[in-house]
Amino acid sequence: MILAWNISVFVLGLLIFGATLRLMMGPTAPDRVVALDAINTLVVAIMIVLGAVYKQTVFVDVAIVYALLSFVGTLFIARFLKRNYL
């Protein structure tokens, strides 16, 4: 079971590279924000799986706080985009 979770962490890390590709080549700023959102979700998933691997509940707590903070970040970036600052 531990091995399967480690492999899935590896796969999710590779998927983060895919999202980073879109982050680098996205033609407009909203595309980059979408890629950033995808990376945030994947990082939360990785933290949850690592919490199960090491049997540490703290990892999942950090994941919750990370999700909330990234949500606030996304909202602020969207607000800036709306006013054409970026």
Binding site: T28, A29, P30, V33, V34, D37, T74, L75, A78, R79, L81, K82, N84
Partner: peptide, 9 residues
């Protein structure tokens, strides 16, 4: 929020 911002741009 992202969709609305993109449309407003």
């Amino acid at each position: 929020a992202i969709a609305q911002a993109a449309y407003n741009r």
